[in-house]
Nucleic acid binder design. Structure first.
Lengths: 139, 139
DNA sequence: CTCTTACCTTAGAACCATTATAAGCATATT
DNA sequence: AATATGCTTATAATGGTTCTAAGGTAAGAG
């Protein structure tokens, strides 16, 4: 837990028990949970937590660059504690999201007509497909 | 208008006046409109149209592969009548979306550990940046 | 032609993820 | 101990999207 104290002091981010529980759940999590996923998981150890606290905490983490909000699933937002540049693969059946750690930056150059209209800050690749368990479901 | 009759007969998609108005607005449109954008635009020529009809029509077009639903803007869905493979650039300030017609498919190969878990059907690149008019707004 | 059927449109209600509100709580500072 | 600040919470509000149910339309059957 000292890791957190180190990481968040000076950032005006109070490490309350609720926030520690959320941070602990997110630490190393590669499931790309939704706010509700986080809420339900933390609730088992911390039954009084409110969904509003989850959203508030995610907002604060987002502002501090500690978490990425993913707009990939058309139905809800997902959160990714891995803020290093990487990409994703999404199951078009169940919306499961997987990580892709591959550096495509060399080849992903936006064309001239885009550079004239936008100052580009980053990019992100999504692959779409069907995951194993959804393939199996279709007998 | 005969183009539409040709294009949609046999697909069980009735070409009502409302649908023709929506198709006409979408034809060649590169603005990536939201359902509300479409509703407001069509409403000027067709004041009785309902937003439900816009959503119903978009759903039907989506199912027939005539329109792509874009999950890029965290706030709302956008629709793209251009269904050929292409990519997008998004302004992180105003959510304006631009098209990128560049073929990255050669180099966008998902790694082995992804191919084992997903049957990949496609990919999509988003570039993030700030558009001209938002750059100017920050004086 | 009329009748039937299938599908479409519409207003409004419902839904649901997310955000806002306002009251109470906890902790650090004076 | 008093105060201030920021956090948590339940609940309400918001807003995009979907659902519902009633009526409309037009093509095909008789």
């Amino acid at each position: 837990m000292n890791e957190y104290i180190e990481r968040y002091k000076d950032s005006g981010f109070k490490l309350t028990p609720q926030r520690l529980a959320i941070l602990h759940f997110l630490e190393g999590n590669t499931d790309h949970p939704t706010a509700e996923d986080i809420f339900l998981a933390v609730k088992t150890n911390f039954p009084t937590i409110s969904i509003a606290t989850v959203y508030n905490t995610l907002q604060a983490l987002k502002e501090r660059g500690k978490v990425l909000e993913l707009t990939i699933d058309p139905e809800r937002k997902h959160y990714d504690p891995n803020t290093t540049p990487h990409h994703h693969v999404v199951c078009t059946e169940c919306n499961e999201i997987g990580d892709i750690f591959e550096d495509y930056s060399e080849t992903l150059q936006p064309p001239e007509y885009v550079l004239r209209r936008f100052r580009i800050a980053g990019n992100h690749v999504n692959f779409y497909g069907i995951c194993k368990s959804c393939q199996d479901k279709k007998h």
